[in-house]
Amino acid sequence: MKWEEIKVHLLNKKVGVAGCGGLGSNAAVALARVGVRKFVLVDFDIIEPSNLNRQYYFRRQLGMKKVDGLSYNLLEIDAAIEITAHDMKLEYGDISTVFAGCDLVIEAFDKAEAKQMIAEAMIENMPSTPLIMGIGMAGIGGFQLIKQEKWSDNIYICGDSVSEISESLPPLAPRVGIVSNMQANLALELLLSESKST
C-alpha cells in the first residue's frame, strides 16, 4: 500500500491508549506519525524525571499530567489530530464507555493487576475490539525473545512475556521502544486490514 493510501485509510480510525507511560506514549507517537488522527488517551499520572529514560516526554513537561503532555506532543506532529483525554484511573466498568467507538485499544499499563483488568473487561464487554497488550519488556538485550502473538480472539500480546520490572531489571528506552513500536506496528496492520475488508 502506498503512503498516500495508508493515510486515507487511517483518516477515520480511532485508537484507544490505556496508560500513557513508556508503552503508551511511544506507541501513540508512532501511530500519529503514520496518520492516525483520532485518539482516546487515558492516564492518571504526572510526568516525573524518572520517566524520561523511556517515555515520550521532555524536561520542560515535568509536573504536567501525562494525558496533557502526550496530547501536546501528538499535536506537535500533526495539528489535525483529535484527542479525547481522560485524566483518570480506569476501572473495569469504565472500559467499554471510555473506549466506545475505538477501532482498537493499546494496553500500556504498568501494573500486572491493571493489565488483567483491561484484558478481562475487553473479553467480556468489547469482544470485537482488538486489545494489543505489552507484556515483558524490562531490561537490556534479549531482542530474539520479543515476539507478537494473537493470544485468543480479540487479545494480542507483544513482548517477551517474562521480563518483569524490578530494581535490577528496569524498563529502559530501547526495549520499551521496541515493544511499544511492535504494538503500533500490529495496530497499523489491523487498522489497514479492516479497511481492506470493508
Binding site: 500500556a108 500486572a112 515483558g136 485468543s152 524498563p171 520499551v176
Partner: peptide
C-alpha cells in the same frame, strides 16, 4: 472461548474436548 475470572476457576470444570487458554501477566509498561 468464554472468560473464567479468578474466583470462578475453582468451580468451572474442564472436560474432554474443551479448549483452555491461559495468559499470564507481569508488571511493566
Amino acid at each position: 472461548g468464554k472468560l473464567v475470572k479468578t474466583a470462578e476457576r475453582s468451580q468451572v470444570t474442564v472436560r474432554d474436548g474443551d479448549t483452555v487458554e491461559v495468559m499470564h501477566l507481569i508488571s511493566g509498561g
